[in-house]
Write a protein that binds this DNA or RNA. Structure first.
Length: 440
RNA sequence: GCGGGCGUAGCCAAGCGGUUAAGGCAGCGGCUUGUGGCGCCGCCAUUCGGGGGUUCGAUUCCCCUCGCUCGCCCCA
């Protein structure tokens, strides 16, 4: 639905989250926060805008993200700035900049919007949201399993279905360099049998050829040297330890020797969590170990591991559960709905609403001035259990009318509910009455 | 960046060369100056995403454009 000329719309791929949608996001965020709290992970917030160089160096010039997907511009001070396309580089930059790394291991999480100039698609927008975790200064294999468990349990708690954890090891930097040489040699020898994309990748990013979606290429790769064979004994041992730890935590996984990360600083553990209930963009969470990144950004050599999950994709899954009735969000109904008609009554109604809010009650006030029938209808729809009615009669008598509302769709509601009269202008008395009446 | 599908109200949606642009939901007003869920009545698109063209006549046909959507690429 596009607006006519003259109306300004949001930019392509940048969407508004409307009041009907935000409760689901809040649920997701609250669940994540609770899991981070339990795991002793602290929040870090970094700017949305960084020097372009941070991403060029941190993510890699050769990647699609840096090469063609960044929102980059020159600011008024002639600096090249980029809207962050992901969170890891900023977190590492902040940790280095503020000396966090010299204060022991840092277990951090972040969340918020990221920006990539891509063609919008199911589960992919130009401004999208991630929640991610970065553990800096943590080297042991058990931590790899621990950080994966954090993602796995969060997704499980959210109840998303069809989840699968895919796991691989990229080995040490030396393992990978050696393997890369073997692979390039093999690919060159079979160049004429590869698809065009894969041919181009031989020089730019040979490991990426491994997860080509071209069926012929995949068939051919069955005869290629594998990364697993290229791992040194220490790397194999480490990978085995990660797998054992995951098994001990009852987290199922499948080994995927084709799961690679193209960036140089990745090493050892790489993983992805996918959902069968999504479309083409099935990855909900992706992560891995990046022992080389801190050093690459001029910090002291620091082992690190992290992951990020795509909130839009998660919301898509949660919406399915909501539609299926498997997930219920708490309704945001007020405790009391104030209905008033007439100038004096409106003043009394406003005073009451504000006074009760100051006492901690959730109060919605009808400001329409329309007939009581209409206002009560809205009170009903608000989900409020109680309504306070103030009209000319109540102002004259100094007593407001408190009335309990039945559940929506309750057929017995035609029977008048008991009403009670409470002194007008005495919020404390109203509060007391509600407490007493609620005990019935 | 490439390819497919689709744009009629806040939402769903009929119409397929000449209509007063159906209907439903939501909203608003009324029946009931003051008592909710039901009911009834009324209001809610000078116009069919935008621009141009063909035609006596275009929401309907053609072109361009914008947007949405699904996929490729890539990723979360």
């Amino acid at each position: 639905m596009s607006a006519g000329q003259g109306k300004v719309q949001s930019l392509r791929g940048l969407v508004d989250l409307l009041p009907q949608q935000t409760p689901l996001w809040q649920h997701l965020e609250a669940t994540a926060r609770e899991h981070f709290r339990r795991a002793g992970v602290a929040e870090i917030r970094t700017p949305l805008l960084e020097h372009t160089e941070l991403f060029a160096r941190g993510i890699g010039e050769a990647t699609d993200v840096v090469g063609k997907e960044m929102y980059t511009f020159v600011d008024r001070g002639d600096r090249s700035c980029t809207l962050r396309p992901e969170g890891t580089a900023s977190v590492v930059r902040a940790a280095i900049e503020h000396g966090l790394l010299s204060q022991g291991a840092q277990r951090l999480w972040y969340g918020g919007p990221m920006f990539r100039y891509e063609r919008p698609q199911a589960g992919r927008q130009r401004q999208f949201h991630q929640i991610g975790v970065e553990w800096l200064g943590v080297a042991d294999a058990a931590s790899d399993a621990e950080v994966i468990a954090l993602a796995w349990d969060l997704l499980a708690a959210l109840g998303v279905g069809g989840l699968a954890l895919e796991l691989n090891s990229l080995g040490s930097p030396e393992d990978r360099a050696a393997y890369r040489e073997q692979l390039v040699a093999w690919l060159e020898a079979h160049r004429d049998q590869l698809d065009a994309d894969s041919q181009a990748r031989i020089s730019t990013n040979p490991l990426r050829v491994l997860d080509s979606k071209n069926p012929d290429t995949q068939a051919l790769l069955a005869g290629a040297p594998t990364l697993a064979e290229a791992l040194c004994p220490e790397s194999r041992e480490r990978f085995a330890a990660v797998q054992e730890a995951l098994s001990a935590l009852a987290i199922p996984f499948v080994l995927n020797p084709r799961l690679v990360r193209g960036l140089d600083y990745y090493s050892h553990t790489a993983f992805e969590i996918t959902s069968s209930q999504l479309g083409a963009q099935a990855t909900v969470c992706g992560g891995g170990r990046y022992d080389g990144l801190v050093e690459q950004l001029c910090g002291a050599a620091t082992p690190a591991i992290g992951w990020a999950l795509g909130m839009e994709r998660l919301v898509l899954l949660l919406e399915q559960r909501l539609a299926a009735g498997e997930l219920q969000l708490p309704a945001a109904a007020p405790d009391l709905y104030v209905v008033s008609r007439g100038a004096a009554a409106e003043r009394a109604g406003l005073a009451l609403a504000v006074a009760l809010r100051r006492l901690g009650l959730a109060v919605e006030r009808d400001a329409s001035g329309s007939a009581f029938g209409k206002q009560l209808k809205r009170a009903q729809r608000s989900g409020a259990a109680w309504v306070a009615m103030i009209g000319d009669d109540e102002v004259a008598s100094g007593q407001l009318r408190l009335k309990r509302l039945g559940a929506a769709g309750d057929a017995t509601a035609a029977v008048p509910d008991a009403e009670s009269m409470v002194p007008l202008g005495d919020a404390g008395a109203v509060l007391t009455s509600l407490r007493l009446l609620n005990q019935d």
